[in-house]
Design a protein around this nucleic acid. Structure first.
Length: 602
RNA sequence: GCGCUCAUAGCUCAGCUGGAUAGAGCAUUGGCCUUCGAAGCCAAGGGUCGGGGGUUCGAAUCCCUCUGAGCGCGCCA
C-alpha cells in the first residue's frame, strides 16, 4: 500500500523534472508514514521538506508543485493536500484498502515475509553458546530468545540463515568439570572426597557421574589422571550438551550447527592464526606485562590485573590497540592483547579469533554474535583481530543483551553456577511456559536493562501480556468458527467478490487493513536493525485495534443477515488472523485457535 | 580512573535513519456483558522526555557537557 503512494510521488517528481518545472539530480531518501492524527490523511510524506534545498524551493511551494502535477496512473488518490511545514497528506480510495485483505489472504501464513532465501544473502547467527559445564540458566535466556528471534527475523526477511552454537569445550573450565565429575564418580564407590575451590558442587554433576558409572563401571577408578580426565571431560560435555539441547527444545529454539572450540585446536587453526598475524607484522614479544597501550592507564589497586599480576609473564602480543595506519590509531581496543603465553600456549582470545576467522572464511554476508553485556569488553578485541586480518568489519555485528536482574518477592535472585544455586531455564519454562518467557524477553530492546519478576510470570494474569496477544488471534479464529456454526462460513479468497470486499468502509476497518499492509516494512526494518521487538509492538497495536473494533460494533456484528457485509468483514478477520499468525511465527510464539478461560480468583 | 550501555507517566517499557498534540501495559478512579470470547472495551487522572548548552524551518531522537545507574577493564573462559 505504501509502495503505491511511493510510486505516485516518484513518478510525479520525474515528470516534473522532465517538464523542466523542477531540477534535481536524484530523489533523496524520504519517508511515507502513517500520520498520528487521522485528520492528516491516510499517508503522509515529507519529500517536499527533504528536497527543499536540493530543488532550491521552499517546502511549501514544492509541495504545491507536486500536488498540481500529480501523476496517479492507477487512480488511487482521492485527495492530496499540503499541510504544516510542507507535509503532503494523501487520502486513498477505499478499494486500495480493501485490496490489502485480498493480498493477505493470498499470501496466507507467509504474509509480510520475503520468499525464503530470496535475497541470496547468507547469514550466520551465533547465540546461546553456553559453556558445556552446566545447564542453561536464566542468565542465558535473554540471549537465547533474542538470537532465535533475530534468526527468525532474518529468515523472514528472505536471507539464508544458519544458527550456530559455539561450544567452549577446551580450556580450564571443562578440565575443572572433568575433575569434579571424577570426584563424584569416586564418591559413588565410597571414596571420601572434598571439592576444591572453583569446582562444581551442583547436583547435575552427580547425575553425570552416575551415568558414567552405569556405562563403564569401575573401569577408571584406579587409573591415572591422564586416562580418566579426558574421558570424564568427554562424558561431561556430552551429557551437558544433551541437557542444553533439550532445554533449548523446550524453549522452541534450535541450532543448525554446533561448532567445537576443541576442533580448532586439533586442526591447528589456533596456532596457524598466530602465524598469520606474525607474517602480517602485527605482533610483538613482550615480558612481564610490558604490553603497549593507548595513553597511560590508571588501574585501581583492586583490579584483577593487579590481583593476578604474578601470573602475567609476557609472551606474544597482538596489536589490537596500537596498530597504526598513517600514524594514527585505527582500532578501538585500549591495549594490545596477549595471544600466546610465555610458554607458547594460546589463550581463549586466540581460539576465538581463529573461530571468527573461520566464520569469515565460510563466506557469510553477515555474521551476528549475540553476547551478554558482560562480554562487551570482548567485542573490540575481536573486531580489531578481524580488521588486522583484512576482513570487512561491518559484516560482523554484535548484539549485546543487557544483564537481567531476576527478582522474586522483591529480592534479587543470584544466578551462580559455581554455588550450585542456579535458576535453570528449564525450571522457568516449566513454571511459566515457553511463550511467556520468550515474550517477556522479546518485549524489550536488547539495550534495555530490566528486572525479571519470577512471581509475575508464574501468575497467569494480566501481568502476562502474551495472553493478550494470543487472545487476539484466538478471537479471530473464534469469529470464523462462529460463522461456520451459524451457517455462513467465510467463502475464501477465491470466491470472495469485490462487491463483498467493498463493504469494508468503516474507518476502523480501513485502519486495520492499512496497518496489516505494513507488516512487510516492519519486518524489513526490524531485520535491518536486528531488533525483533518492533514486530511485537506492531502486533500489539493491531490487536488493540481489533478488540476495540469488536467491542464498538457489538450491535453491528461481523456476522449478520447481510451476506455481503458479513463476507467482507470475515475476509478482514481472516486476513488479520493470517497477519498475526505470520508475525507470531517470526517472534516464535504460538498462535492458538482457542484459549481456555482463566481460573476465577476469589 | 577509563570504556560500553542506559536515564521517557507511580511501576515496566515503546517511540522506525530528526517531523504535526510524546504512546502502550500494569497500577488508581469511574463506566460497559440477553448478541461473534469481559483474558476484552470506553473514559479520567498522571510528563519541564535526568540537568544545562549547541546544531535548524523543527530535537525525546543528532553533538558537547554535567549528574546518576548497570556492566566491563585477567596471561579465566
Amino acid at each position: 500500500m505504501k509502495l503505491l503512494v511511493r510510486e505516485v510521488i516518484d513518478e510525479t517528481l520525474n515528470a516534473l523534472k522532465a517538464s523542466g518545472a523542477l531540477t534535481f539530480d536524484v530523489i533523496p531518501p524520504y519517508n511515507i508514514e502513517v500520520p498520528k492524527n487521522l485528520e492528516h490523511g491516510d499517508w503522509s510524506c515529507n519529500v517536499a521538506m527533504v528536497m527543499s534545498k536540493a530543488a532550491g524551493k521552499k517546502p511549501g511551494d514544492l509541495a504545491e508543485l507536486i500536488i498540481k502535477g500529480l501523476v496517479d496512473r492507477n487512480a488511487i488518490v482521492v485527495s492530496a493536500e499540503k499541510a504544516g511545514p510542507g507535509f503532503l497528506n494523501f487520502r486513498l480510495k477505499d478499494s486500495v484498502f480493501q485490496a490489502v485483505a485480498r493480498e493477505v489472504l493470498k499470501a496466507g501464513l507467509t504474509f509480510g515475509r520475503n520468499k525464503p532465501k530470496s535475497t541470496g544473502k547468507k547469514m550466520l547467527v551465533e547465540f546461546v553458546s553456553a559453556n558445556p559445564t552446566g545447564p542453561v540458566h536464566i542468565g542465558h535466556a535473554r540471549g537465547a530468545f533474542m538470537g532465535d528471534a533475530i534468526s527468525r527475523l532474518l529468515d523472514a526477511a528472505g536471507h539464508d540463515v544458519t544458527r550456530e552454537f559455539y561450544i567452549n569445550d577446551a580450556g580450564n573450565q571443562v578440565e575443572t568439570l572433568g575433575r569434579t565429575i571424577f570426584k563424584r564418580y569416586q564418591q559413588l564407590f565410597g571414596v571420601e572426597i572434598q571439592l576444591a575451590e572453583g569446582e562444581y558442587p551442583a547436583e547435575y554433576v552427580i547425575e553425570i557421574a552416575k551415568t558414567w558409572k552405569n556405562e563403564v563401571g569401575d573401569a577408571y577408578l584406579n587409573k591415572p589422571q591422564a586416562e580418566w580426565l579426558p574421558k570424564a571431560i568427554e562424558v561431561g560435555i556430552r551429557e551437558n550438551l544433551k541437557a542444553i539441547r533439550s532445554t533449548l527444545a523446550m524453549a522452541n529454539i534450535s541450532h543448525d550447527t554446533f561448532f567445537s572450540e576443541a576442533t580448532l585446536h586439533t586442526a591447528g587453526k589456533v596456532t596457524s592464526i598466530v602465524d598469520v598475524y606474525k607474517a602480517r607484522g602485527v605482533t610483538y614479544e613482550a615480558t612481564e606485562g610490558k604490553r603497549r597501550e593507548k595513553g597511560d592507564k590508571v588501574r585501581s589497586e583492586e583490579s584483577k590485573a593487579a590481583k593476578y599480576a604474578d601470573r602475567q609473564l609476557g609472551g606474544t602480543f597482538l596489536m589490537t590497540a596500537t596498530y597504526q595506519e598513517n600514524e594514527k590509531y585505527v582500532l578501538k581496543d585500549e591495549e594490545d592483547r596477549i595471544i600466546l603465553r610465555h610458554d607458547g600456549t594460546p589463550v581463549y582470545l586466540t581460539a576465538d579469533l581463529a573461530y571468527h576467522k573461520e566464520k569469515f572464511d565460510r563466506g557469510y554476508d553477515l555474521m551476528v554474535d549475540v553476547f551478554g553485556a558482560d562480554h562487551a569488553g570482548h567485542v573490540p578485541r575481536i573486531q580489531s583481530g578481524m580488521t588486522l586480518l583484512g576482513f570487512e568489519q561491518k559484516k560482523l555485528q554484535f548484539v549485546l543483551v543487557q544483564i537481567v536482574r531476576i527478582t522474586q518477592g522483591g529480592e534479587e535472585v543470584k544466578v551462580s553456577k559455581r554455588k550450585g544455586t542456579l535458576f535453570e531455564l528449564a525450571d522457568l519454562i516449566d513454571e511459566a511456559g515457553a511463550d511467556v518467557c520468550r515474550f517477556i524477553f522479546l518485549m524489550k530492546s536488547a539495550n534495555a536493562q530490566f528486572d525479571f519478576d519470577l512471581d509475575g510470570v508464574k501468575k497467569q494474569s494480566k501481568d502476562n501480556p502474551v495472553f493478550y496477544f494470543q487472545m487476539g488471534h484466538a478471537r479471530c479464529a473464534s469469529v470464523l468458527k462462529k460463522a461456520i456454526e451459524k451457517g455462513v462460513p467465510f467463502v475464501g479468497a477465491e470466491a470472495l467478490t469485490d462487491a463483498q470486499l467493498a463493504r469494508l468502509v468503516l474507518p476502523e476497518e480501513k485502519a486495520m487493513l492499512k496497518k496489516m499492509s505494513q507488516l512487510g516494512d516492519v519486518v524489513a526494518t526490524s531485520a535491518e536493525k536486528l531488533e525483533p521487538h518492533h514486530v511485537l509492538y506492531f502486533c500489539q497495536e493491531l490487536i488493540a485495534d481489533f478488540h476495540s473494533y469488536f467491542t464498538k460494533f457489538r450491535s453491528d456484528p461481523i456476522i449478520s443477515d447481510d451476506v455481503d457485509k458479513t463476507q467482507g468483514r470475515l475476509a478482514m478477520v481472516a486476513a488479520l488472523k493470517h497477519t498475526l499468525a505470520s508475525a507470531f511465527g517470526i517472534l516464535g510464539i504460538a498462535a492458538p485457535e482457542h484459549m481456555e478461560a482463566p481460573a476465577e480468583e476469589e
